[in-house]
Simulated assay, not measured.
Amino acid sequence: MEGPFDDDCFAIRQAARHVSQLYDRHLANVGLTITQFSLLGRLKRAGPMTMKQLADTMRMQRTTLVRTIQPLRRNGLIASE
């Protein structure tokens, strides 16, 4: 299927990659990834929640969430019970 939709979709994906790379470049200065930054923002807005709630909210698999959170715990940016 060729047409304007293909070009629009590509342009949107390219713009999203560009924005993500921009954030990653600046967040690297403080040792965070874009995903970790998003998690911290979500927790700040929503408050404490279970791993399952956070995974559901972020639309992430729990194993991916655990790998993303480990450095945040280690660096004292979040705590878990």
Rank of each mutant, 00 (worst) to 15 (best):
G3H: 03
G3M: 02
P4F: 05
P4A: 10
F5N: 06
D6R: 02
D8E: 03
Q14D: 05
Q14A: 11
A16D: 01
A16C: 06
H18N: 06
Q21M: 12
Q21I: 03
L27N: 09
L27I: 03
A28L: 09
A28N: 10
N29S: 14
T33P: 08
T35S: 08
T35F: 04
T35E: 12
Q36F: 09
S38M: 09
S38V: 11
L40W: 06
L40S: 02
R42H: 15
R42I: 12
L43G: 01
R45L: 10
A46Q: 15
P48W: 10
P48C: 12
M49D: 05
M49R: 08
T50R: 05
T50N: 02
M51Y: 12
A55D: 06
A55F: 05
D56W: 14
T57G: 02
T57E: 07
T57R: 05
T57N: 09
M58F: 01
R59W: 05
R59Y: 08
Q61M: 03
R62D: 12
T63P: 00
T63Q: 13
L65R: 01
L65P: 02
R67V: 13
P71T: 07
L72V: 01
N75L: 14
G76P: 02
G76Y: 12
L77V: 02
I78N: 01
E81R: 14
